[in-house]
Amino acid sequence: MNNLSELHLDALAEVFSIGAGRAALSLSEIVGDEVRISVPFVQVINSKDINSTTLSLNSGRFGAVSQHFSGPFNAEAVLLFTEEQALKIVSDMMGSQMSLEELAEFEHEAMCELGNIILNACLSAMADILNFTLESSLPDYTVASADEILQRLKANSNQPYVMVLHIDLAIEKRHTAGNLVFLLSSASLDNLITHVDQFLGKIS
C-alpha cells in the first residue's frame, strides 16, 4: 500500500475543502441561497476493501455522476448521492414547485451540472494548489443500486485504489450527504503523493 501519512490526508482534505468552497459559491449563485459544502474527511483505501459501509451505501438506488480526469494524475471520479437526495438537490437547483415526475425529467441534466460543478471545483483546486494541469471528460449520470455501484468500483483492476471524500451538502437548510470517489491506478496514486510531498516540502 502506498504511504499516505496523516499530513498527506490533511493536505488533501484542505485542498478539497477549498474545492468545496468554490463549488458552494457556484451552487449558491444557481439556487440564490447559501450552500454549505464540507469535506469532513478523506480516505484512501484498496478498492477490494471498499464496501457499503465505506460509502454509507444503504439499500435503494443511487445517482452517480462520473467524469474522467487526465494529467499527471489520471482518475475516474464518481459523485454519489441516493436517488432520493439527488431529486431533492435537483428540486433545489430548479427552484420551483415541480412534481417528482416533472423533476425526474431534469434529473439527468441537473445532476450532470451538479457533478460538473463539484468535480471540477475539487479538481481545479487540486490542480492549482498542487501545481499541475488536468483535462476532464464530459460528465455522465447513471442511476444504479448499491451492489451495482460497488461491483463497478471493485471491477476495475487497473485502478486498484480509491480515494473517498465524504461530502456534506446543505442547500436552503436541507442537509444531504454524499461521497466523491476517485478511482486511481497505483501509478496515479504515486504521482499524487509525489505532488503532495512537493507541496508539503515547501512549508515544512
Partner: peptide, 8 residues
C-alpha cells in the same frame, strides 16, 4: 481566512 467565499 476561508474557502467558504459566498456572499453571506
Amino acid at each position: 481566512f476561508s474557502a467558504n467565499i459566498q456572499e453571506t
